[in-house]
Design a protein around this nucleic acid. Structure first.
Lengths: 121, 121
DNA sequence: CCTATACTTCGCCAAATATCGAAATGATAC
DNA sequence: GTATCATTTCGATATTTGGCGAAGTATAGG
């Protein structure tokens, strides 16, 4: 029950759902997710930590960058089921389509440039 | 997206998950759910209203009683998927098993007696 | 080392939420 | 009608949550 509650609570936020859905397409470093959501680094970091705690995402460190990705196929059925449900439910939505478009742009820029631009603001 | 958020937020509470899972077995009137959760009538009523708003449960009125049940097979895929995930994820859990046992006892008593007993406290 | 940098943690505030008891609602039964 | 009863709505309160900026951590590169 604890795990289930952790997972649904992790999903129970629009920004976390958007981030999670974005990770379906590609792994992303934090600054890319920051760019997508338009929130402060600390807030996005916190969101990702909640998703990680619930085992919905994993991360790998590459130098100064931390790349997040959705949990893999080997994840617990609880998690696997949640991710599949989110994908099926969000796919085709209007806001989702907009995020996908923006994400494609974000992926064109390399993370370094992205972070630099963010620091200016 | 709005619908998805409504559904996950509705699921993001342990007591609502317990109520929802209990409804998998049988339709229940409010006082039976009150008995199961051990919360005040107003609180449980509010929980059920949130689940209804998200279309996860439906209700029918029978005299003074209102019976709640899980959304049927004709429900939107979004809802159907969520209910199936909850069932699969909670089935076999320890707290869940306890609830099932208690629920069986609750179903032995008729609702009228149950309500009367609750009014005493 | 020292600086810059990508990210995290902490302290704070505002908004949302869970809970209760009291009052309101709507239906039954006398 | 009046009383009773199952449920809902309202008002108040306590807790949780989402958000930010400032300070902290860890790593790359001079």
């Amino acid at each position: 029950m604890r795990d289930v509650v952790a997972v649904v609570k992790a999903l129970a936020d629009e920004n976390r759902l958007r981030a999670l859905f974005a990770l379906r397409l590609s792994e992303l470093c934090l600054c890319q997710i920051i760019e997508l959501l338009g929130l402060s680094p600390s807030t996005v970091s916190r969101h990702m930590s909640i998703l990680k705690q619930a085992r919905l995402v994993e991360s790998r460190k590459d130098g100064r960058w931390i790349y997040y990705r959705q949990a893999g196929d080997n994840a617990a059925p609880l998690v696997r089921g949640a991710l599949d449900w989110v994908s099926r439910s969000l796919k085709g939505g209007k806001e989702t389509a907009k995020d996908v478009r923006q994400l494609k742009n974000i992926l064109k820029t390399n993370p370094e440039t992205l972070c630099k631009r963010q620091r200016k603001n």
